[in-house]
Computed example of a mutant assay.
Amino acid sequence: MLKAHETQLEIDLSALTHNYNYIKSKLKTGTKVLGVIKAFAYGSDSVEIAKHLEKLDVDYFAVAYTQEGVALRDAGVKRPILVLHSQSVNFKTIIERCLEPSIYSDYVLKEFIKTAESLSQNNYPVHLKFNTGLNRLGFSEDEIGDVVSKLENTSAIEVKSMFSHLAASEDPNEEEFTKLQISRFKTIAQKFETQAGYKPWLHLCNTSGIINYPEAHLDMVRCGIGLYGYGNSVEEDQKLKPIATLKSIVSQIHQIKKGESVGYNRAYKAKGDEKTATIPLGHADGLNRIYGKGKGYVTINGKKAFILGNVCMDMVMVDITDINCKEGDEVIIFGPKHSANDLAESANSISYEILTSISQRIPRIFKNE
């Protein structure tokens, strides 16, 4: 590890390689891998992650919104990019930047056809999203006929893939529902193929789906959190490597007497003579105010330092009464040994939230293979 001299996010690209290869090992030969790099690649750096995954020969990328895809194209990323939540205001940009939209409703389908025809497109690739139970985005099974009819009346677009999204693939208590979703999607795909006369690629599995439902790998899988080192279970977390380590330093140490308070609103009052450390990291950096008051800790010299009082915008105070440390010492907020999942669980959250909350003002430092 590189020693921190300020708050920084260290990204280990060798860990990314390990995670990608582990996911690939779960798949049968020929199954494509789509790397999900939305939200700045889960809080890391979408451009650097995309370029590294291109070196590993990933097949596809996915982002949430058009501007995320534009940023990748501006940086020279060449692989196909699926825009998961495409919106009509961006359709011209999507086509101009060679991005590929998710088409998830009758309105979106009509508007994209209109834009594609106005730009004289022929067989522009699109991806049909179907709702099988998440009830977020997607056509219903009943709309297949209308979708096929509109496709038959234009040569401007072609369906590259069909997909859906599993709602609870990480939850063994929801196995029955997940299998129902898989069955629904296969039925939808068969009906579309029968009515349209051809079979697009099919993809359904997220990270937990890849791990838990190999029968649903189909033509391609979409891997997000797994690439970044989290498998949504203790067992799988041990086989993956978190790529990101959030580090900072001890800015100042205070000796606090019994009854003295720490931070805004006097939210913590010392129970005896105590010692605190101030760290240059706060809720503006992604360490949200849900932490503190007994929730969450960092590690200093290998020991737990619990967060005291309210998290400030740019700073946080921790208890170092029993820790031998000095100003300038390194602080680990999360990393391979104290993971983002550990920190998130202390506040009834999930690793996704803390990873994607990391402020863009924090420098990203890369460890190459």
Rank of each mutant, 00 (worst) to 15 (best):
F177I: 15
S149P: 09
A71Y: 11
D273H: 12
F334T: 07
L16G: 02
K78E: 09
E193V: 10
H18Q: 00
I323S: 00
L99R: 06
R97L: 08
V159M: 10
R222S: 02
R79A: 15
F40E: 14
L137F: 15
P280K: 04
E143I: 07
W201L: 14
P214N: 06
G335C: 00
L202S: 13
L137N: 11
A168H: 13
I95C: 00
K129Q: 07
D57Q: 11
T29A: 14
D74V: 13
L308T: 05
N301G: 02
P125G: 01
I81P: 05
S88N: 14
I320D: 07
A62V: 05
K258E: 13
N206V: 12
L9V: 10
I256C: 01
W201H: 12
A305N: 07
H217E: 09
K367R: 13
L227S: 07
I23C: 03
Y104V: 03
T207I: 11
Y228V: 10
H165M: 08
L287P: 08
S248Y: 01
G30A: 11
K303S: 08
Q190Y: 12
F61D: 04
D74I: 14
L72R: 05
Y198H: 08
E158H: 15
M220C: 10
I300M: 06
A39P: 03
S357Q: 03
G282A: 06
F112A: 05
T207C: 09
N123G: 08
A116D: 01
I333H: 10
K51D: 00
Q87L: 15
T356G: 00
R97W: 12
N131V: 05
A50T: 05
F91I: 06
K337I: 07
L240R: 06
L84T: 10
G309E: 00
T132Q: 13
F192C: 06
N368C: 12
K24A: 13
Y228W: 07
K275M: 06
V47W: 01
I157Q: 00
Y268Q: 01
T132E: 12
R97D: 07
V126W: 02
A189Q: 04
D45T: 15
V159G: 12
A189D: 00
I279S: 01
Y352R: 11
L343E: 00
K275H: 04
S86E: 00
A64P: 10
E174R: 11
V262W: 01
L82W: 13
Q190P: 07
I11G: 03
I157W: 07
L82Q: 12
L246Y: 12
N301S: 05
K303L: 05
K258P: 02
K247Q: 07
G133T: 10
P280F: 10
I243S: 04
N135W: 13
N19R: 01
K304W: 01
Q238D: 13
A167N: 08
C205K: 09
S44F: 08
G69Y: 05
I362H: 02
V316I: 05
Y297N: 05
D59W: 14
F40W: 03
E176Q: 14
S164P: 05
A15I: 08
L287H: 14
K275I: 10
A75Y: 15
L246E: 05
